[in-house]
Amino acid sequence: MVNAKADAGVYKNTKTRVKTDAVKLGKKTNSKLNTKVILCGVQLDNPIIPASGTFGYGYEFAEFYDINCLGSLSFKGTTREARFGNPTPRIAECESGMINAIGLQNPGIDAVINAELPKLREVFSKPIMANISGFSVEEYAYIAERLDEEEQVEWLEVNISCPNVRGGGMVFGTDSKAAVKVTKAIKAVTTKPVIVKLSPNVTDITEIAKAVEGAGADGVSLINTLIGMRIDLNTKQPIIANTMGGFSGPAVFPIALRMVYQVYEAVKIPIVGIGGVSRAEDVIEMMLAGATAVQIGTANLINPFASKEIVENLLNIMEKYKIKDLKEIIGGAH
């Protein structure tokens, strides 16, 4: 899949400058630093993956920069039918973070396969992580089956942790038995690695992680957002129309890191670390806690170039902390 000779990208002018076009092309370079990781048998040029819901279907970000510098991307959570989502306001600001209650707005699986993915393919040649969600076990399985024919989709990321919809999403992620059912149903209809995205809104996240591992999941990604809310002092009412929403941003990073650390000790399958990652240093921390790859979420919304800048800065930070090969640090803090 990837040129075995290709190294981690060019690292020139060792102090500050990184030549990004070489990073994205994965050309052999004079660098001895290796950013490649293998996630469920699929190699990524680097572990950086924009998180679902913060990057659309990718192609719009390609208007801002060449998104091929990324390891992969996880597209917007997709359901069987098109969804409008929740009423507005859907967004509230917090100290070092934000709350969203989008409610899985997406064009539905048909439009994703027929319109969104073809547009993404034109601008993105890297493996794609398909984020799927549903309101029944059958819906999850149906979408998984539909995506099984999409070559560029290398992993299914199963969102059983959306806090913003009733009767779906998180209902499956806060109950081990339901999580097992969804995982098994998807595994039965797909040949692709299945990564189950976990909710932090549980007493013990390792319990759900172990349950989905037992059900055949190939990996887990964590964390989804934490349920939170804000109240407008002028109106004395919740800011979010849906009252509550998912809290994300740098403020949740220590919680996410702790959970990745705990899950790493509980399961053998690879972990995708998510939650408040905003800089290359955070990526290294996540990997030391046990993440094989790392998703960048809310940071993309504040700075549309965040994922690109993190990729560019990764080599600097690796050199600074004397890390030659990223995959060797996975779980290094244990």
Binding site: E60, F61, F84, T88, R90, I91, N100, N300
Partner: peptide
């Protein structure tokens, strides 16, 4: 006018019908 997360189309925070 609407409350926005990103302002450039990524977060879907300001959608209307």
């Amino acid at each position: 006018e609407e409350r926005m997360g990103c302002g450039f189309g990524a977060c879907m925070g300001c959608t209307c019908k």
